[in-house]
Design a protein around this nucleic acid. Structure first.
Lengths: 218, 218
DNA sequence: TGCTACCGTTTTGGATCCAGTTCCGGGCAG
DNA sequence: CTGCCCGGAACTGGATCCAAAACGGTAGCA
């Protein structure tokens, strides 16, 4: 959500973004305890905003909390990853079906813009940009469904697997798949074919989760 | 989660439970701003644990937050209520389908126990007990699915409509419906008939949401 | 040797205090 | 009379300090 170059207006929002990045980037190793004092010092804030950020992350399922024992970075097992993708499959299908009858030029405009950015990033091999543009593409569609709670839930599911998704974009082959699948889904959406779009998105996710399943063993 | 008679080990957990109750009971009116100082004083804690509890409630969608402007109690529109129930329909169906092949005596034991408590509360007209027992019944089933994230999401959806559900249990007629629908679903589960159980739970929710839709106009 | 109780250390939980922002109302100019 | 600007009050955001609980190591005992 934070734009490049402008820091969030509160420390907790800055800390939230920073800790989330650190977790998804693997700097905070899964399963390890979070030392509040040390982490706060590293981010040059006090423990108060850090603790509020951690509460948010707990709500998103990125960390766990036990009273008087503090926070730990969550470990994503293979089963967890599959559960997240299964839930995304169900919820995103609902969002797409709800959105299709409501699509208009404004939404297609956002989809096209995001897709153009995805394709540019894919060619350049810009992993971070690709992840961001990809998210804009999908959520432009989800938000068109007019179901804000659904969008929120899907968002937290995406957040909880951000780390792994970046891995996926590192592969040239994978990036080409993404571009092709987006184009196919977009064509189905233009034709008003909700089920066709859903099928393409399903394939989109299935490809990702299978590739990741292999990589996680390592 | 907190047992009767034992206070939570930390102030933030106590505050969390108390504020959630106050919101769902309507003591904190929807749409109004939350004055941290006053609320903290009323609960006899400082603002620190209150703010952490509010962050959790924000994650659950019960309050909204804007930087430097504080927290507001969320207003549930008719559209929101229908969205929550639609999402429950989808997610709980998934949970039931995943749980049915895994059901064993231990789970049925918990289901029977909870159902007995539901029926006792229904006869006594004990609304709060009925709500609690009803939740135990449904979640005993959901948890059997072995999908912890799914259970968490469903839990937050339940939380966000607690206030309205208590209204529903106030009606004698409604309580009888609940008991009958639970029994029917339980019979289907015993027969290993996932789709039958899903249909009963769908009817269960549909009855509730339609009744509530009427009451909310007032 | 293995277990337990104890005590100092570390870490988390919470209260208080201060700073920065927003909100609200009065005064002033047009 | 209306709109704008400014100043004080109220409230939120954050830092520091203190209390309480958990952890780790050691000594004492069976």
């Amino acid at each position: 959500m934070a734009e490049v170059g402008s820091r969030p207006p509160t420390a907790q929002q800055f800390v939230l973004a920073e800790v989330r990045r650190a977790i998804t980037a693997g700097e905070l190793v899964p399963g390890s305890a979070i030392r509040q004092e040390a982490l706060a010092a590293r981010l040059e804030v006090s423990r108060v905003p850090l603790r509020e950020a951690l509460k948010t992350l707990e709500g998103e399922g990125l960390v766990t909390y036990r009273a008087h024992r503090g926070y730990r970075v969550v470990e994503l097992s293979m089963a967890d990853l599959r559960e997240v993708y299964r839930l995304r499959e169900i919820l995103e299908a609902e969002a797409v079906r709800a959105a299709v009858p409501l699509l208009d030029d404004a939404v297609f405009g956002r989809l096209e813009t995001a897709q153009a950015e995805v394709e540019r990033a894919a060619e350049d091999g810009a992993v971070a940009e690709m992840a961001a543009a990809n998210r804009r593409f999908h959520f432009a569609l989800f938000e068109a469904a007019g179901m804000p709670r659904l969008v929120r839930i899907i968002g937290t599911l995406w957040d909880s697997t951000d780390a792994y998704r970046s891995l996926y974009y590192a592969g040239d082959e994978n990036r080409r798949h993404v571009v092709a699948e987006h184009r196919a889904a977009l064509a189905a959406l233009r034709a008003g074919d909700a089920e066709g779009a859903v099928r393409w998105f399903d394939r989109h996710r299935a490809a990702a989760v299978e590739t990741l399943a292999g990589q996680i063993e390592s």
